[in-house]
Amino acid sequence: MFKRLMMVALLVIAPLSAATAADQTNPYKLMDEAAQKTFDRLKNEQPQIRANPDYLRTIVDQELLPYVQVKYAGALVLGQYYKSATPAQREAYFAAFREYLKQAYGQALAMYHGQTYQIAPEQPLGDKTIVPIRVTIIDPNGRPPVRLDFQWRKNSQTGNWQAYDMIAEGVSMITTKQNEWGTLLRTKGIDGLTAQLKSISQQKITLEEKK
């Protein structure tokens, strides 16, 4: 169930391209415009997507990853294993993690069937560096609404905000991946996880038929 919630949630996290980005210092504006741009692209490019579902990787690479804190999220997933990894191991892992996100997020976007969304009203940021933004996803086919909290983090150097995690039903996506990959990290280390991520990233994206 959580895996499905995570995939549905990713439908609204794909941010804007650099040329049309919203105010990078306001995570609420980023979330709002990102959702609108993403849904528009999914709707307008269905012919290309249906002809070649792996085209979704391109959308992810162009529109999402430049505005997601990939390395920060990847380091959180590694936890204690990050500090013990060599620079070469980290570089290989982050490259594999990025390719994994292209496949995983692309597969999530393949679930698009006309969903709509509501974003919580903007709250004062103050001096906060981590801000959760509640998004409610509404399914046109009558499924119950899904309420999610996207975690946005302020870059201490640039002042810009980027998304790095999502919490559904009190469970963090980062925590879920830590639990899912924990045994592999304990037995085969970061190299074993890197190899698995490379394998997963090679899987073809498949479209979910409308139910």
Rank of each mutant, 00 (worst) to 15 (best):
E33L: 04
T58M: 07
L193H: 10
W181M: 15
Y93N: 05
Q123N: 09
F39D: 02
V146W: 10
I133F: 00
P66I: 03
V171N: 05
Q48R: 11
M1E: 01
M1P: 00
Y67T: 07
E99N: 15
A168K: 08
E122F: 12
I138N: 10
L193D: 01
D127R: 12
D191M: 10
N52E: 10
G126T: 12
T25V: 10
G79T: 03
V12H: 04
T183G: 06
G142N: 06
G79F: 01
T187A: 00
Q107N: 10
S84L: 11
G189E: 02
K83T: 08
V77R: 01
G182V: 02
D54W: 06
Q151D: 04
F97E: 02
P144W: 07
T58N: 10
I190H: 11
L125C: 07
Q69V: 04
P144E: 15
Q36S: 12
G182S: 15
K102H: 11
T176F: 01
M1I: 04
M111D: 01
G192W: 14
E180K: 04
A34Y: 14
G192S: 13
Y112H: 04
Q115S: 03
A120P: 14
E122V: 10
I174K: 15
T86S: 10
Q62N: 10
T25N: 09
W152E: 03
P87T: 12
L16H: 07
Q89T: 09
L42Q: 12
L30F: 06
L11G: 01
S84K: 11
Q103S: 15
A120R: 11
I130H: 11
D54N: 15
A88C: 12
K71L: 01
Q36G: 08
L184T: 09
N26C: 08
G79M: 01
A104P: 03
F39T: 02
R134T: 03
A22C: 14
Q46E: 05
Q115K: 01
Q118V: 14
A163R: 11
Q115V: 01
A9E: 00
Y81Q: 15
K204Y: 09
A34T: 09
Y117Q: 02
G159V: 12
T20W: 15
R147A: 00
K198D: 08
L76T: 03
A95L: 11
T129I: 10
T25L: 08
K211E: 15
V60K: 00
L11Y: 02
I137G: 02
L10S: 05
T158E: 07
Y93K: 00
M1N: 00
M173Q: 00
I138G: 11
Q24Y: 08
I174T: 13
I205S: 04
E91Y: 07
V8K: 01
W152L: 03
T176Q: 00
M166N: 06
L78Q: 07
Q103G: 15
R57I: 13
S156T: 11
R134I: 04
P53G: 14
T175L: 09
Y55P: 04
L207G: 15
A73D: 04
R134K: 02
V70Q: 11
A108K: 06
Q24H: 12
G126M: 08
T175A: 00
Q157D: 02
M111A: 00
P144V: 07
Q162P: 11
L101A: 15
T58D: 07
P15E: 06
N52D: 11
L64G: 01
A73W: 01
Q196Y: 10
K43A: 13
Q118L: 13
N160C: 09
V171Q: 01
K188C: 08
L78M: 12
D165K: 00
P145Y: 04
A85Q: 14
I200M: 10
E169L: 02
K210T: 12
Q196T: 02
S172G: 00
L56A: 07
K128V: 12
A88R: 11
L78P: 02
A22H: 14
L185Y: 11
T175H: 08
W181D: 15
Q178V: 02
Y93Q: 02
I13Y: 06
G106M: 04
A9L: 15
I190G: 05
G74N: 00
F39S: 04
E122K: 15
A35E: 04
H113F: 03
I205D: 06
K198P: 15
L184A: 00
I13L: 14
K102Q: 11
Y81N: 13
T136M: 10
F39R: 01
V77L: 04
K198H: 10
L78H: 02
D32Y: 08
Q162V: 03
D139H: 15
L193R: 15
A95I: 10
Q46G: 05
Y67H: 05
T176G: 00
T158H: 09
D40I: 08
P140N: 09
L78C: 07
T206K: 14
K3Q: 10
Q115F: 02
W161Q: 00
Q162K: 06
L42V: 14
D32P: 11
G189H: 00
G189S: 07
Y82R: 01
G79Y: 00
T136Y: 11
Y100C: 14
I205N: 15
I13Q: 01
A73N: 02
V131L: 09
I137R: 13
M6W: 03
A34G: 05
R98E: 10
S199V: 10
E33R: 04
A35H: 03
A95V: 12
V77S: 09
T20P: 08
I13N: 01
Q80N: 05
I133T: 06
L109R: 11
G159F: 10
N155K: 01
G142A: 00
T58H: 08
A73R: 00
Q69Y: 01
L193N: 13
E33K: 07
D127L: 11
E45F: 06
Q103A: 11
A168F: 14
Q80S: 07
T38Y: 07
Q36A: 10
D127T: 11
A96W: 07
A95N: 12
T116K: 15
G159H: 14
Y67S: 06
V8I: 15
P140M: 15
L193W: 11
Y28R: 06
Y112G: 04
I59G: 03
A35I: 15
Q36P: 15
P15F: 11
P27D: 01
R98Q: 14
Y164G: 07
V77C: 05
S156C: 02
N160F: 01
T136S: 14
F150P: 07
A163Q: 13
S17H: 06
V131I: 09
S201E: 06
A18W: 14
E180Y: 04
Q203E: 13
A35P: 02
L5K: 01
R90M: 02
D127E: 08
T158C: 03
E99F: 09
F94S: 08
A19P: 04
S199N: 10
K128W: 06
G142W: 08
A104K: 01
I130E: 05
G79K: 03
A85G: 13
A51S: 12
T136R: 11
Y93I: 04
G192H: 10
K211V: 15
P53K: 11
S199M: 12
Y82T: 02
L101G: 14
T38S: 10
L10I: 10
K188S: 12
